[in-house]
Amino acid sequence: MNDCVLLGHGGGGRLSHQLIEQEIVARFGQGPLQTLPDAATLELDSRRICFTTDSFVVHPLEFPGGNIGDLAVHGTVNDLAVSGARPRWLSLGLILEEGLPLATLRRVLDSVQRAAEQCEVAVVTGDTKVVRRGQCDGLYINTSGIGEAIPGFALSLSRVGLGDCILVSGPLGDHGAAVLSAREGFQMQNGPLSDSRPVHRLVQSVADLAADIRFMRDPTRGGLATVLNEMTAGQSYGIRIRARDLPFSPGTNALAEMLGLDLLHVASEGCLVLLCAESVAAAILARWQALPEGVDARAIGRVTDQAGRVILETAIGGQRVVDVPSGELLPRIC
């Protein structure tokens, strides 16, 4: 086999077959994918399922702390988890650029495999296409996911009440900062590391407290600021958070200070934001902190009566509005 992806790998002939057998079936062929049917046949225990899809187009494909492969698994698994579901099955759609080194593809697929195992999900169906050089940026991935709803979760913003607590499971903005620093080639000692990781165990660890959990989200694109604004938009309540309680990693913080980025606007890929009744906040934090992915979990604020407003108490005790970012995160002039 050549050492890079050729147009013929997507042509449906022998090369295609080889690629699928050697790279896909070898990794994911234990279950329904084994005989490469046109569709996977799945059996459910539950009557309520969650179904989601996401496409991944990150540049560079590999960055400190992860690559597009584990990101594509974690992103979809996390969307299911924060909806109160136990992730079960994934599809894997690959769009490959002619000329992509096969070694890169293998590293990415190894990551998909590892991440899927770690998340206890099976890749049960998929598709591979090859496009001409220049028509895609190396490799795009789409994953769709099916999860079974965990009984007890009734997530709805209509159940939010004054004094409810906002919790986050770990440092904010690590993924966005890591990708940015890799993209721009910043050479930083102890620089940012992506937090690409699953949050399903964090959700499952608090399933028995589900009745008092109002809402969950993973703060990906747009960061915590976007999630908090989504939680309050058009509602009769607001949210107040405290800067001194927000967890940030030192490397991420350093990059943000240098570039003038507001980390509330920067993506995480392995963090959970949860809104719950005060009565269960301490128990949730204790369970999270006992898991490696929740060691840095914190309570960061509360629900207030300031309708629709997200307010930050700043590090020095002032206060300001937390707004959503308007578009691209752009470096400032000086």
Partner: peptide, 28 residues
């Protein structure tokens, strides 16, 4: 950059009514 920091840290909160702070032309 002062304008940004003043807004970001909520510094206007610290000023009594007799002191007003206006932003100048310092954004290139």
């Amino acid at each position: 950059s002062h304008t940004m920091a003043i807004a970001r840290f909520g510094i206007r909160d610290f000023l009594p009514a007799a002191i007003s702070l206006v932003s100048g032309p310092g954004c290139p």
